[in-house]
């Protein structure tokens, strides 16, 4: 790891100020991607601004059927939260299968979506749930938040403060983890609401997580795994790498979508 300077921010204002003063600073949440990336010298921020001690980023609030997850909430906290489990168990199950137990004690939902790794789990959930991303400056609809591979609508000094969404009628998530890294080779999150069905795919898209409208249309007609029988998705825009070809990923999307619907209707 190259040299860096560590700062601990006590508030959002202080974090933004520290970043502005830094030459090439970066916000640090749980660090489960950033620290390994720095160790490999793929990232070399001059300054790290630690967000883990900012009170505004902590906590999960449930208000009726509305849920708000503070950006600093760890995957372990989401996985074990009884209030979330009662309203949207799929988000808890998703969080419970990110990385491993030790990673889940550090990694946060805010860090995950701000990084927008194409193989991360949370972006699919945020998209499919039609969540709102709250930041230190504004609120951003999920459909406008993710803008491509590792890309988001966030400005340089903008910090994700929370993710909020209301309870779907039904929701489910299924992923095919890479056998070695356990990252999603393909992960599919489905959510049904009175106004429609949303399906989002992680792990497969060349531009990161995306919504699969063909699957949404089929499931809007009938929210049942059988509604996806015989469906075949184009491989255009999907990643091809040593782990899987675009064609294989296209096939997996339909398979995982069926499993996600099966989980949703339980």
């Amino acid at each position: 790891m190259y040299q860096t300077t560590y700062h601990r921010a006590a508030s959002l204002e202080e974090a933004a100020k520290l970043l502005a003063q830094a030459d090439d600073g970066k916000f640090l949440a749980g660090g489960q991607t950033l620290i390994p990336t720095m160790k490999q010298r793929l990232a070399a921020p001059s300054d790290l601004i630690d967000l883990r001690h900012i009170p505004e980023l902590k906590g999960i609030t449930i208000n009726g059927s509305d849920m708000r997850i503070g950006a600093g909430t760890t995957h372990a906290e989401v996985a074990a939260h009884a209030g979330l489990a009662a309203l949207c168990p799929a988000i808890c199950r998703l969080a419970a299968h990110i990385g491993d137990p030790h990673v889940r004690h550090m990694g946060t939902i805010g860090g995950s979506i701000a990084n927008n790794d194409p193989a991360a789990d949370y972006p699919a959930a945020v998209l499919a749930l039609g969540a709102t991303v709250e930041t230190s400056k504004r609120t951003i609809a999920a459909d406008d938040f993710f803008t491509g591979l590792f890309g988001t609508a966030l400005e340089e000094d903008e910090i994700v403060t929370a993710v909020s969404f209301s309870a779907p009628e039904k929701a489910g998530y299924a992923k095919f983890p890479n056998p070695a890294s356990r990252y999603a080779l393909v992960g599919v999150f489905v959510a049904r609401r009175p106004e429609g069905v949303r399906v989002a795919v992680s792990g497969a898209g060349e531009d990161g997580a995306f919504r699969a409208s063909a699957l949404e249309d089929a499931l809007a007609r009938s929210f049942d795994p059988a509604a996806l029988d015989g469906i075949s998705l184009p491989s255009t825009g999907l990643m091809s790498d040593i782990h899987a070809s675009a064609e294989y990923r296209a096939h997996l999307i339909a398979v995982m979508a069926k499993r996600a619907v099966k989980a949703a209707i339980g």
């Binding site: 560590y6 640090l28 489960q32 630690d50 030790h102 990673v103 004690h105 550090m106």
Partner: peptide
Amino acid sequence: AVKSCTMLAAQ
């Protein structure tokens, strides 16, 4: 439990 190779001492 955390992975101490993935956390700075300063953190």
